[in-house]
Deep mutational scan, measured.
Amino acid sequence: SASLEDVKTAVLGLLVILQTKLYTLPASHATRVYEMLVSHIQLHYKHSYTLPIASSIRLQAFDFLLLLRADSLHRLGLPNKDGVVRFSPYCVCDYMEPERGSEKKTSGPLSPPTGPPGPAPAGPAVRLGSVPYSLLFRVLLQCLKQESDWKVLKLVLGRLPESLRYKVLIFTSPCSVDQLCSALCSMLSGPKTLERLRGAPEGF
């Protein structure tokens, strides 16, 4: 439990870093931090981490990651405290083949985003970082199938509809809506759902 406290501190630090690096160059920093966060949550489900502190780590990670939004130009952003989304000039939600690297070039400044813009690109060529939603999407499927803490599952179920409104997140990387529907149906009809959940409301 003591070591998990250190892990929790590290994860919180990564969330803060991602919130900053999403809007700064090099964009590969945001890509790497995002991948680290998603990989860490995957390990929770792989090794069945069920301690309360592990659940709190997942809760905080999902609470942040499910706020990711994308505009029509595929640029990622996060809402501010007033709910207004600021889109990044440097990070996009497109999935890119590994051989192309985590970044790609664009020939010049991008068109203005639909929300308040981030800082304008400084040079004639900007390297865009790929932060594909499919990585998070796979972890969300694991959550629906394996999550043991009701608070975490409730958060994910509550945030998913709003995330799905931003269709560009889903359609720019390999996210299977069929698998999502299947996971939701299995969660509702499967007898093991109630068996594994802690803290579920009576009558769920």
Rank of each mutant, 00 (worst) to 15 (best):
A2Y: 08
S3N: 11
E5Y: 06
V11M: 05
L12V: 14
L14K: 00
L14I: 06
V16S: 15
V16N: 15
V16R: 15
Q19L: 03
Q19H: 08
T20I: 09
T20A: 10
L22A: 05
T24Y: 08
A27K: 04
T31W: 05
V33N: 00
E35C: 12
E35H: 14
L37G: 00
S39K: 08
H40T: 02
I41A: 01
I41Q: 00
I41T: 03
I41G: 00
L43Q: 14
H44D: 01
H44G: 01
Y45E: 01
K46F: 10
K46E: 14
S48N: 15
S48D: 14
P52F: 02
I53K: 02
A54Q: 01
S55Y: 05
S56Q: 15
S56Y: 11
I57N: 00
I57S: 01
I57A: 01
L67D: 11
L68N: 03
L68P: 03
L68S: 04
A70P: 09
A70R: 02
A70Y: 03
L73I: 08
R75G: 03
R75A: 04
G77L: 03
G77S: 05
L78F: 12
P79I: 08
P79E: 09
K81H: 12
K81L: 11
V84I: 13
V85T: 13
S88E: 02
Y90N: 06
C91H: 11
C91K: 03
V92C: 11
V92R: 08
C93Y: 02
C93Q: 03
Y95P: 09
Y95H: 08
Y95F: 12
E97F: 10
E103N: 13
E103D: 15
E103T: 10
K105I: 13
S107E: 12
S107A: 14
L110K: 14
S111E: 15
P112N: 15
G115M: 15
P116G: 12
P117A: 15
P117V: 12
G118W: 12
R127A: 11
R127L: 14
V131S: 04
V131K: 03
P132M: 04
S134M: 07
L135A: 11
L136Y: 06
L140S: 05
L140R: 00
Q142C: 10
Q142F: 08
Q142I: 08
L144E: 00
L144T: 02
Q146H: 11
Q146K: 12
D149K: 02
D149H: 06
K151T: 15
V152T: 05
V152G: 01
V152R: 01
L155K: 09
L155E: 06
V156E: 00
R159Y: 05
L160T: 01
P161F: 06
P161I: 09
S163M: 13
S163I: 15
R165S: 10
Y166D: 08
K167W: 02
K167Q: 07
L169F: 08
L169G: 04
L169H: 05
T172Y: 02
P174V: 05
P174F: 04
C175R: 04
C175L: 04
S176N: 11
V177Y: 04
V177Q: 03
L180T: 01
L180Y: 01
C181I: 06
S182Q: 11
A183L: 11
C185R: 03
L188E: 01
S189N: 10
S189I: 15
G190M: 09
P191C: 13
P191H: 13
K192F: 12
T193F: 11
E195N: 10
R196T: 07
R198I: 10
R198L: 07
A200S: 11
P201G: 13
G203R: 08
